[in-house]
Design a protein around this nucleic acid. Sequence first.
DNA 1: TTATTATATTATAATCTTTATAAATAGTGT
DNA 2: ACACTATTTATAAAGATTATAATATAATAA
Lengths: 148, 148
Amino acid sequence: MSHEHNHLQEALDTLKATGVRITPQRHAILEFLIQSMTHPTADDIYKALEGKFPNMSVATVYNNLRVFREVGLVKELTYGDASSRFDFVTTDHYHVICEECGKIVDFHYPGLDEVEQLASHVTGFKVSHHRMEVYGTCPDCTTSKEVH
Amino acid sequence: MSHEHNHLQEALDTLKATGVRITPQRHAILEFLIQSMTHPTADDIYKALEGKFPNMSVATVYNNLRVFREVGLVKELTYGDASSRFDFVTTDHYHVICEECGKIVDFHYPGLDEVEQLASHVTGFKVSHHRMEVYGTCPDCTTSKEVH
DNA sequence: TTATTATATTATAATCTTTATAAATAGTGT
DNA sequence: ACACTATTTATAAAGATTATAATATAATAA
């Protein structure tokens, strides 16, 4: 049984447990998110599934991404550019983003509890979570920028 | 000579040095950003200055914020919500954001060079910078949520 | 100071992402 | 299979940002 299959099954269980109906569209969106390595936009998902669901509405994609986010299955990433990207939540990881080509690569890091604690102490906030991304140039783009 | 005045003067020098013309609108936008503690949106700035510049266009605000960003005077912050916020760049600091009321508070932290280094090592990226924010509930909102 | 010239501003429209609405459809538990 | 309610669809609307073209203006040099 593959990891992808596991994730999908667990996600469907989560939906059932929270009383969210499992529709073919939701199934397909989840499946796409899980197998996707590209942190797609809502429009990416919409386009990717229009073969299987010629009548699906963009609103359906947005609605379901919101539902998935509320249930904790999906994380919404807002970078500088126009549209949000969506990431199926697996284990805790951060992202490195290539400023040349936009590629997003995961990397794992112990977590920044210390920063949260300091922030909480200094500002008096009750801290719930944080986000962090690293920006730079990916190996491919670094190579193609070199003079030959 | 106040800090605000210093910042403004330095900002104007930066503009002159990079060949960006200093217009009354740019002067006012910079001034507002420097004295503002609220990380305003483009529309906030537009509204704040419409008394002084009744004919200023929204496009002017956006254009100039882009120019300031390109020159390194201003940082654009994209959180989950609809519009970007703009922050005059002074010393390195991070933000805590209240999930109830949206308030943004600065806090200083040594910097996460170690994370950048690890990310670079693991992914092969040439790292240029990172962003991080902490989320939680501010003291005011915590208080007003308590049962009396 | 004035003329020149490129740049900035304005007004407007267009574009793009995301959300709202209402009618039609389809899951789910019985 | 039925009934109930959530979901989907199609469409329009809203909101943020960018593009365009005409006008105005800052910087520079004569």
